[in-house]
Every structure is written in C-alpha cells, then in structure tokens.
Amino acid sequence: YGRTTTEAPAQQPGQQRKAEMKLLYGARAAVIHGLETAMQMEFDASCDLRQPKLWPTIPLKL
C-alpha cells in the first residue's frame, strides 16, 4: 500500500493472481484457475484468428 512505483515488486504478478485465486476459491483454486486460463487462451486465439468486429460499433449502453 505504501510502496512507491520505483521499488521492485515483492512478487511476480502471476504469483499474486495465484494467491488471490487461493483466497477466493480455496481447495478448488487450481482447477478453476486452469479452466479460466484455458478459456481465456481459447478466446484470445479465436479473436486473433477470426478478427471479430465489435457490434454494434457504438455501445448501446453508455
């Protein structure tokens, strides 16, 4: 909290995410983390491949 940006991060970002997942999901954290990672990777890969266009172009709900 009191840390300034010039200091080196105490942890790797991945480690922090892992700790968050552990706190949120406890014993099932690894399973859920695995499911989420797989899904996000598939989403990202699919976006690269399909190049979807946002629809509608302008958000309906601003």
Binding site: M39, F43, S46, K53, W55
Partner: peptide, 28 residues
C-alpha cells in the same frame, strides 16, 4: 462461441443484424 473470463465480451459468429449477417462479431 466464447466469453472472456471477466465476462466483458462475447465472441459470436453468424450474427444476424438488421444490416445483414456479420460472420464474426464481438458483443459487449
């Protein structure tokens, strides 16, 4: 097709819009 894990966007295909069909689209 797919959702991102934060639930921000849905990736869809063959979207039928009033302006025609869009083969690949992202909905917010």
């Amino acid at each position: 097709q797919l959702s991102d894990i934060d639930g921000q966007n849905f990736l869809v295909s063959d979207l039928e819009t009033p302006m025609g069909t869009q083969p690949q689209a992202m909905l917010r």
